[in-house]
Design a binder for these strands. Structure first.
Length: 264
DNA sequence: AGTACCACCTGACGGC
DNA sequence: TGCCGTCAGGTGGTAC
């Protein structure tokens, strides 16, 4: 599930449950989630310290560790099936727990990932991490000049470019479809054919769609009636015009759009 | 720079 | 019931 809005939800969850608790032990139950670091090193860096604050960059959740040392940030990526569980430290951990952080005081945070497509990493700073991973600016914090600078002059397809994490970070399969829908652009539309008012509309749709998705997914509000996400199935009525939603495959991903509303 | 395809993983679901 | 293909909100590598 995790795209930008879902990761924002995990950020708020971690903030509400796990800040300021001293880490007693880190148990890695499946090291395949660890990206180039050993279970030993992860435990060494975390044990005895505590989570002090979080930041989200795209689909990455960065967690700052105190007291200050060398690797001051834990980086979490949730892949397609990752999630977090904070709970009382008793009994079996949740199914598919890959990393278990035990706090003093009898609580624990489980990093759960069924398909193991997520990642756990360490970083010196968010800035260095973003550079090392070649991530573009966070999609929700990109203003109009930034958006123009990142996407202007590109010739790829709208959806492909929106999902390119080095152009903008955070947009996934669902949000890309939602953005294209609100911008009234065919997901395959070539960016260099989207100019002037339509390019500005793509920026507005990006900001507005992501902001609303965050309010719904992370904030618990109801999805507005004019959103495409609840209608991701072939033949579903388009929430704007009622015509049948169509499914195509783009970048090997299921892509839904309204053939009547969205133009190339 | 851009696209297509494969690989990495596990599970759910429908057809036969 | 078992087997098989397809699909699922992830990224990274390859070849062209």
């Amino acid at each position: 599930m995790p795209e930008l809005p879902d990761v924002e939800k995990f950020k708020r969850y971690l903030d509400a449950t796990s800040l300021g608790r001293r880490i007693a032990e880190v148990a890695v139950t499946d090291r395949r989630l660890l990206d180039g670091i050993s279970p030993r090193r992860l435990a060494d860096r975390l044990e005895g310290r505590w989570f002090a604050e979080t930041r989200r960059h795209g689909k990455w959740l960065l967690v700052r560790l105190e007291p200050e040392d060398r690797d001051d940030w834990l980086a979490l990526h949730f892949g397609m099936t990752g999630t977090l569980f904070h709970e009382k430290d008793a009994g079996e951990p949740p199914e598919y727990t890959r990393v278990l952080v035990r706090f003093t005081g009898g609580r624990r945070l489980a990093v759960v990932s069924m398909r193991m497509l997520g990642r756990v990493d360490l970083a010196r700073s968010p800035e260095r991490f973003v550079r090392r991973r070649d991530l573009g600016p966070d999609a929700l914090r990109a203003d109009w000049p930034t958006f123009r600078e990142r996407l202007g002059g590109r010739r790829g397809m709208v959806k492909t470019t929106l999902m390119n994490q080095s152009v903008l970070a955070g947009i996934g399969n669902i949000s890309a479809d939602e953005i294209a829908f609100h911008a009234r652009l065919h997901p395959r539309a070539r960016l260099d054919h989207v100019s002037g008012e339509r390019f500005r509309r793509l920026f507005d749709a990006t900001q507005e769609s992501l902001a609303v998705l965050v309010r719904c997914i992370a904030g618990g509000e109801a999805m507005p009636d004019d959103f495409l996400s609840p209608h991701r199935a072939e033949g579903e009525p388009c929430p704007r015009c009622g015509r049948a939603v169509r499914r195509i495959v783009l970048n090997q991903r299921g892509t839904y759009y309204c053939p009547a509303c969205q133009r190339v």
